[in-house]
């Protein structure tokens, strides 16, 4: 069993190996900076389905299928399926589990879902009880817009601090055995709320949580930012990641060139997304394409993957509540 370091970090005895990874994205993301790394790019955001919600579910299923294929496994070899998404009652995750024949845990972590389920998966793997755990999450621009914001055809302007929920899904296959990038440490974060109420400025709401989790991880493991090839946060966006760098600087940790943010990197500058990408799919597709690939090729030896989430609902923000942020971090080492 893993050993607890400090207050929040767990060092795993038997690191979970990521033997399969798959990413699928929408058309707009397919024109972004990571285009050449994604496994599959959709031409049609509706994916041949009747509704966008069905399309999101189908994306997750496709990611699972692709992930199993790349890991050379069959559906029957999966023992546990961990998943989550942004929709009410996490329907995409649960409805995709309907097609699988294994235990299922549905987890809501907003946009932090990917690192949360990878962390939980790695810990469960460390118990020795499981051989293969499948982790998947995704988001869809249109379904998120329908649920959290306005109808698509409403003629309003997006504020300059807003981000673009990405259309995409990512899946990782964790395995007990194998020669693949491995999850060695897990730090589950605390909910941090610095009283940001602007729902169009998620980066600012989540940055304090990212700061807290990263500092805790550095303290617990007695490491410094420079000990890692890459420290990557989920979807803070341009503004949020600048805020995080300032916050860390104030606490005596300098995030230099080895720091990046999935949301900020997702789109090119002329794709008009203002602060960049967001959504559960954002960190999931970057992790399951670019990051795992680089780890496999040994271009990165050791990275911190810290997906960030804003734990609000439309009800809470209408009632004037501020936005609680969360960030879960995992350390992944190359094979």
């Amino acid at each position: 069993m893993g050993k607890k370091l400090g207050k929040q970090t767990i060092m795993l005895d038997h690191p979970a190996k990521i033997i399969g990874n798959f990413s699928i994205v929408g058309e707009k993301e397919g024109q972004g900076n990571f285009a050449s790394y994604f496994d599959m790019i959709l031409k049609d955001d509706k994916y041949g389905q009747k509704t966008y919600e069905k399309a999101e579910k189908k994306m997750m299923l496709e990611a699972i299928k692709g992930c199993l294929h790349k890991a050379h496994l069959t559906t029957s070899q999966v023992e546990l399926y961990l998943a989550g998404d942004l929709l009410n009652q996490i329907i995409s995750a649960s409805f995709s589990a309907r097609e699988l024949d294994c235990s299922y845990l549905g987890i809501y972590g907003a946009c932090s879902t990917m690192s949360e389920i990878l962390g939980i998966g790695a810990l469960l793997m460390d118990t020795g009880a499981y051989d293969h755990i499948l982790c998947a999450t995704g988001s869809h621009f249109t379904t998120a817009e329908r649920q959290y914001r306005y109808p698509l055809e409403l003629g309003n302007q997006r504020p300059p601090t807003s981000q673009w929920t990405i259309t995409g899904a990512g899946a990782s296959m964790l395995s007990k055995e194998g020669n693949a990038p491995k999850i060695t440490h897990v730090t589950f974060g605390k909910v941090m709320d610095y009283n940001i109420k602007d729902v169009n400025n998620m980066g600012a709401a989540m940055a304090p949580a990212a700061m807290d989790t990263l500092i805790t991880l550095f303290q617990d493991t007695h490491t410094q930012p420079k000990d890692y090839d890459l420290i990557v946060t989920g979807d803070l966006g341009k503004l949020g990641s600048e805020i995080l760098m300032d916050l860390m600087e104030n606490k005596g940790y300098t995030l230099g060139k080895n720091y990046a943010d999935c949301g900020q990197m997702m789109y090119t500058n002329n794709q008009k997304t203002y602060q960049g990408g967001s959504g559960a799919g954002c960190s999931a597709v970057v992790f399951n394409s670019y990051l795992v690939d680089k780890l496999k090729k040994k271009e990165y030896k050791k990275i911190i993957f810290a997906a960030t989430g804003a734990l609000l609902s439309t009800t809470s923000s209408q009632q004037g509540e501020s936005i609680p942020g969360i960030c879960h971090a995992i350390i992944v080492e190359g094979a």
Binding site: T161, N195, I196, A204, I243
Partner: peptide
Amino acid sequence: MNDIERDKKYNDYVQAKIPKTK
């Protein structure tokens, strides 16, 4: 955890940090 002064300082900082668009 709630710290009114910290929150106010942070909100002011964020307001100043928001990019000014044309």
